[in-house]
Simulated scan of single mutants.
Amino acid sequence: MSPFELTRTLPEDATGAALRADVLHGLTATPKTLPPKWFYDARGSELFEEITRLPEYYPTRAEREILRDRAADVAAATGARTLVELGSGSSDKTRHLLDALTGLHSYVPVDVSESALRGAADALLAERPRLHVHALVADFTARLALPKTPGPRVVAFLGGTIGNLLPAERAVFLRAVRAMLDPGDAFVLGTDLVKDESVLVRAYDDAAGVTAEFNKNVLAVLARELGADVDPADFDHVALWDRRAEWIEMRLRARSALTVKIPELGLAVPFEEGEELRTEVSAKFRREGVRAELAAAGLTLAHWWTDAEGRFALSLATVAG
């Protein structure tokens, strides 16, 4: 077996087709919406890395603290020989798990970006030449066919990214995760927790304006990829806490009445002054809610760890029954 293998399950134009479909659906809906995955072109990824270093943005630091302190507990609980990471990106925080899983044979990073997968694999194999990396270019929200690797396996979904899915989408996703697992496998999930509204809003509306630029970057993606004649300066960044749904919403608010023309789609999208386009939902969780959502998918919450301040949680679930 080669130290590095890559399998592409997405067609070459899958990203472009998905963008066109999401824009057509989301910008003709009421209210207007776009999925947060379209933030992450090269510039958007740079901005997000900058966000993770901001004093207001605690989730990355909090999750890294838990991984540093509890990776050995994950290893002891799972004895995993294969680590699968959904939405792996740079695989940066994953190194804590890779270090702790001393019997690890294979690492299976899953991401839509082939360049991110290759870059992460090069860095990991330079440090761990005996590790087998089998990368999947795939959409983690779709049902995945994992490569044949030794068990037991642990599937990790970090960063609180599950909060970007709406409740019905989370239910579908968690059932798909359950379908990947055999008895003896485990699922490690990172979730941001409900906390004081002011702390949450500051995390998504920092004083330096980096998150505002990140939010508006989706408009730059529309301009570059679909020819949209949109000026990010025509929109304001908005972050607010929905107490009922217990999630943060990021929105773009039109400063004046305008029309965004998207030639690639033959679309003209009118905005009234003050009209908002929702670009992200980031749900926050409570322990019992996580337990219930896992149980509904056929998973049993076995371990629950938080950082010292109780801001973020890492949970480990096993196959129910």
Rank of each mutant, 00 (worst) to 15 (best):
E12F: 04
A72L: 03
R70Y: 01
A80W: 13
V238W: 13
R243L: 02
L146T: 09
Y107C: 15
K148T: 15
H237P: 15
K32V: 01
I248P: 08
D92W: 04
L34G: 09
R175T: 00
L252N: 04
F48N: 09
R287H: 03
L117C: 04
T30W: 11
R286W: 09
K37Q: 11
T141I: 04
G44S: 10
A77V: 01
P167S: 01
L6S: 02
F312W: 05
P35H: 03
V23T: 08
D192K: 00
H105Y: 14
R286N: 02
E275P: 05
T318D: 04
A228W: 02
A77R: 00
D205K: 05
A317H: 09
A239G: 15
T33V: 07
R20G: 02
R286E: 10
K284P: 13
G227A: 14
L27F: 09
T7S: 12
A179T: 12
A268D: 11
G16P: 08
T52K: 11
E5W: 06
A77N: 01
A313K: 01
V108C: 11
K284S: 11
A212W: 13
A228D: 11
R170N: 03
T60C: 12
S198T: 14
A245M: 06
A179E: 11
A123W: 11
E264W: 06
D99M: 05
A257I: 11
A283G: 01
R178E: 09
G26N: 01
E5N: 14
V319E: 00
A121W: 05
M1C: 15
I51F: 08
V110M: 03
D231N: 07
V177Q: 07
V74H: 00
A179G: 04
A220N: 06
L219W: 05
R243G: 02
P109D: 08
R68S: 08
A75W: 07
E114Q: 04
V290G: 04
A308C: 00
V188D: 10
L86E: 06
A292Q: 11
D41I: 02
G87R: 08
L47S: 12
A320L: 02
V137H: 01
D231Y: 09
D13I: 07
V210D: 14
A313R: 01
L27W: 11
S2Y: 07
V194P: 00
F140P: 03
T33Y: 03
R311A: 04
S198P: 12
E280D: 14
V194Q: 00
A17D: 12
F271L: 14
R130K: 12
L277E: 14
E225V: 06
A239I: 13
A233V: 15
S198F: 12
F4N: 10
T78V: 07
L189E: 03
W38R: 06
D122W: 01
A254V: 15
L27E: 08
R178Q: 11
R244C: 01
S315C: 05
R224W: 07
R130D: 15
T191Y: 01
T78Y: 02
D182R: 12
L265W: 10
D41T: 06
E197T: 06
P232L: 11
G87F: 03
H96P: 07
A239E: 15
N217T: 13
L136K: 01
A71E: 06
A145Y: 05
L258E: 07
W247Q: 13
E246N: 03
G274D: 14
T9R: 10
A302H: 07
A283F: 05
G298Q: 02
A171M: 04
R175Y: 00
L193N: 00
T211C: 13
R286D: 05
D231M: 07
